[in-house]
Design a protein around this nucleic acid. Sequence first.
DNA 1: TTGTATGCGTTATCAC
DNA 2: GTGATAACGCATACAA
Lengths: 365, 365
Amino acid sequence: MSAQSSTDGDAAEAILARVRARGGAATIYDIAELAGVNPSTVSRALGKPGRISAGTAAKVRAAAERLDFRVNPMARALQTGKTRMLGLVLADITNPVVFGIVRGAEHAAAAAGYTLVIAESQESGENEAEAVERLLPSVDGLVLATTRLSASAITDLAQRKPVVLINRAVDGVDGVLPDVGAGVVELVEHLASSGHRAIAYLAGPDTSWINARRWSDILAAAEERRIAIVEIGPNHPTIAGGRDALRRVRAAHVSAVIAYNDLMAIGLMQEAAARGITVPDQLSVAGFDDIFGSELIVPPLTTVAADLVAAGGRAVRAAGRGRRLPAERGTSGTAAHDVARAWVDRPRPRRMTSAPGVSQAGTAP
Amino acid sequence: MSAQSSTDGDAAEAILARVRARGGAATIYDIAELAGVNPSTVSRALGKPGRISAGTAAKVRAAAERLDFRVNPMARALQTGKTRMLGLVLADITNPVVFGIVRGAEHAAAAAGYTLVIAESQESGENEAEAVERLLPSVDGLVLATTRLSASAITDLAQRKPVVLINRAVDGVDGVLPDVGAGVVELVEHLASSGHRAIAYLAGPDTSWINARRWSDILAAAEERRIAIVEIGPNHPTIAGGRDALRRVRAAHVSAVIAYNDLMAIGLMQEAAARGITVPDQLSVAGFDDIFGSELIVPPLTTVAADLVAAGGRAVRAAGRGRRLPAERGTSGTAAHDVARAWVDRPRPRRMTSAPGVSQAGTAP
DNA sequence: TTGTATGCGTTATCAC
DNA sequence: GTGATAACGCATACAA
């Protein structure tokens, strides 16, 4: 045993003490010193297994372990340009619809070694633009859930960093679109077979792409079955928004309502109950999203479900592997970029008792 | 007009083109070139207003604007040691209890110019430790909500970075403890005056600090009023956990149950309904947290509320301004650190119809 | 007030 | 296979 090896423990202690004294964490320089190699060798040993001899690799790993080393993500990011962070921008964190998205996104991010940073826009396009600008320099990619940004703003954004949309389709930008078309058809079918001849769609925000999509799906399904269909709105996509809409619903003389989302459906049901209107006997109510709580209220809410956890996960994985679209090389003119085909997620709608694709539909009076 | 100024636009264009060509963002070097000053002057002009002449400051700002400059957070962090990021670690994102915390935390973070990164531990201490280690190098501080970490692990952590706990008290570590003591007293009082003589507490996880606290509050309040009180558990803090507990609740021959949280209360009510036991006529059920949905279910759930949004906000602000406890300077021995006094948040419990401090308490049979 | 020089911790590009 | 050195973008002592 050489004098060298007999002092190894002390050497480690000395370095450790120095590290603590400067109040920070151990660096690859500390490891290099302890292992008796060059810092660049440490970086390689830790980063690219295989391109280094087994012996030194082991020495380096041991030293790193001994000093409780963890790489500094900022220093790495500065050099590589990759932060290993993904941004998730949501309209409203308290909206139960996004819970699934957040969970799916967080899991997928952690699994892929990414850190998830989130921001909320409060349903305001201005706030959202601000949040996006704030996040953008720190992340490798961005997931925008039910964004209120304009298509052109999104296109511009996608030129800078990989962007993945949830519940929104923009040409040339990746998107995850939970497909509720089949669920809508089955819901309308179910309402029709239950005797409903006049239905209202309680619209959400008119800036919402998914709102437009739901309306057009419902419109088509109703037309096909020769059922009367009217659109009422736009409304706030909240319980209060649903409450406020009851009067117009009653005035429309329909026997069933499909709301833009479960929150509005719940609000409508609450207000109906307050006015002595029984659901579903006097009014059938259905929503979208299958939020937490829809199975708890009485009567159980009819809702068309989409797998938001999967959507969040897919979006994050796409954002992580994504590269921004190549920018125009020319000196002037409009940028000509590849048009990536938006891909569509097709989860099976949740099947429950009464109607396939929808859960527990109410019956007609 | 000099040739210089007549070519300003072209100069900017040229620099912009170069920036685009290298596929990144503009740096202070680009600004310095365009404004005709030194990079360090740019840094100062943008960072410390006042310590620079008004003229050059304006020039620099104009150039920065022109080049659409945003500082690189990684480069800044590498130099300053501050990332302007805060970590929020949650046991379970899908648990409605944490929604308020997340929202409050996100708002406070954005308002203070911090970026919030979140991680989920899935109720597992191991996962949580892993998530913490993953986040730690990237953040200036950490907020741990209903953590499953041991007190010693938390103390160690607090030595490295500022740590703020929510729903957990550890000596020497800052914490936000929504005070539900008053609400508990009023709830028990209400149950007593409604005729209940025997109550059960449906316990949560035995590793939960807040669970122990709730139990001791309830125990004291019941003792004082000479009401029989029993603890049943531990149970999973979920709807399923509540469901599974019904049998033991019935076996205990109590007329009222206070569950560890609303989810368990809901599960208990669901199972009771399934077994033909009417709530609140045959069994009164109360919970904690006032989660989303508790006002939607029928009958309305009795619940003791705490202002979690405020708690999340306070925790983030504390973490942002916090400094880690000074480490021991000596060469050996136990570190002697300041013991920061944990401070307690005292929100007013939500007041609703029946009982002060609790919302819509059920009545005794 | 502004310019010069240096360092933050890592990866990448050369040599050897 | 390993070492030396530059570079990432910014902030900051120190000089001028």
